[in-house]
Structures are given as structure tokens and as C-alpha cells.
Computed example of a mutant assay.
Amino acid sequence: MNYAFARLWVLGVLTAASGTAAAQASDYLRTVFENPHVRVVELLMPVGASLPGHVQPPGVRISAGKARFRLVASDGSAQVLDYDPGQIQWVGEPERRTWTAVAGEAHVFFVEVKSAATGTVPAEPALAADHASRIDPEGHRAVIDNAHVRVLDGFGPAGAVSPPHSHPPTVLVSLSKSRFRVTIDGRTRVFDFEPYLVRWNNHFTHQWTLLAGEPRVVMVELKSADGDPAYKRRRR
């Protein structure tokens, strides 16, 4: 093997390896929902894996597992950060960091809020008299409320009953298995929340009874969508 051929062969191997690594890194992030107001990205990666120079837009972070990350900023500064199961956090500025999973279950939902990313502050919507946090504050605890989102932490025991209440346009992220009897518009059905289910709801009103399981549902209300005619009340 002459020198020139050997050099080309080594460069080819390195390029292929680099491309494979980049493809694998991108596979750890999956868009699970998107509309004009929000994008939900699910991070799931094994210990030792990295996301080099990852840019994360502003939004809500919801941890599905216990994980420890090493985060390295573009200036080389580093920190070790733990995410706990069910942890809910608002990050209001975009971040560019290299994420490396060093222990635990690296499983995080990034609810990227587009109004925050563009710096557009929506008009503050009025809180409805029958809003879930007013009618059933024990089952719908408000944990974050800022110019862009209101976040409710849904939690309760089997047998819990929630009287009729409303929700504005919302992204739901379920962290556990639970079964509800739900009534909307006089129609009743049984509905299961599965672990790691992500869904979008327009404005709607319902009531429910928790039949089984221990639900943990994080509800991210998008204030920019509240006044959007495309997401006005639709009962489901």
C-alpha cells in the first residue's frame, strides 16, 4: 500500500466514522409533535452518548427518568446536572451545549415554545372561571406561569373525581399508566394514558373519574395558541 493510497484510506475511514457518529447522535432526538405554536422533542440516549454542540430553544423540560448529564458550553465551561423523574423546568433562553449522559436513564421531553424562541410575547389570556386549576386545584396544580406558558401538574389517587372544568390549547405529556372515565358533551368513554404519551388538545371542557393507576400528566398550556382561531373550542 503506497503512502498516498494509505492516506486516502485513513481519511475515508475517519470521515465515515464521523458521519456514523453524527447520525447516531441525531437519532437520540425525535420530534413527536409540532404545530405553529410548539414543538415537542423527545431525548432518549444511553449512558456515554453525547449530543455535540446541541442548540436547545426556550421552553419547558420534563424529565421522564433519573439521569445525570455533563454539559459543556461553547466557552468550555462545564457543569454536572441531575434530572429527576417528573422534574419540570422552564428555560427561557436558547442554550448551546454538548450534552453527555453519564448515569441513569436519559429521557427528557423538550417542549419548545415558539413564541419564546422568536421573542414574541402573546397577549395574556384571561383565566376562565371553569379553568382546571380553579375547579380542581388538587388534581391540576399550577407549577409554572409566565408570559408564554402555564404548566399544570396533574396527579391524583385512584377513585379521584374531577368535576366539569376547561383547558385551553395544551400539550399533554403522560409519565405513567392510568385509566380514566371521561365525559365530554354528555358522551362517556374510558380512556388510557400510556407512559410517555404526548398529545395536543384544543380548547375543551370535560369531567373525569380516575379508575386505576397513579397518573402523572404534565399539561403545558400555550398562551400564544389561546387566541388563535385555529384552536378554538372543540370538544372531544
Rank of each mutant, 00 (worst) to 15 (best):
M1F: 12
N2P: 12
A6Q: 13
R7A: 15
R7P: 04
W9V: 06
V10L: 13
V10W: 11
V13S: 00
V13Y: 14
L14H: 03
A17Y: 07
G19I: 10
A22V: 09
A23I: 15
Q24V: 12
A25L: 07
A25R: 03
S26H: 14
T31P: 01
V32A: 10
P36F: 05
H37D: 09
V38W: 02
E42G: 02
A49I: 14
S50Q: 15
S50T: 14
P58S: 06
V60K: 07
V60C: 05
S63N: 06
S63I: 04
G65Y: 01
K66T: 10
F69H: 00
F69D: 00
S77Y: 04
L81Q: 08
Q89Y: 06
G92Q: 05
E93M: 12
R97V: 11
T100S: 07
A101S: 15
A101V: 13
V102S: 11
E105T: 15
A106W: 00
H107Y: 09
F110C: 03
V113A: 02
S115K: 09
S115Q: 08
V121G: 05
D130Y: 12
A132T: 12
S133E: 14
D136G: 02
P137M: 09
E138L: 14
A142G: 07
V143S: 05
R150L: 14
D153T: 11
D153V: 13
G154P: 00
G154M: 10
F155Q: 15
A158W: 02
S162H: 10
P164A: 15
H165Y: 07
H165M: 08
S166F: 07
V171E: 04
V173M: 07
S174P: 01
L175A: 04
F180I: 02
R181E: 15
D185T: 11
D185G: 05
G186H: 04
T188H: 06
V190K: 11
N202P: 05
F204D: 07
T205K: 14
L210F: 04
E214I: 03
E214C: 06
V220K: 06
S224P: 01
A225P: 03
A225N: 00
P229L: 06
R234S: 02
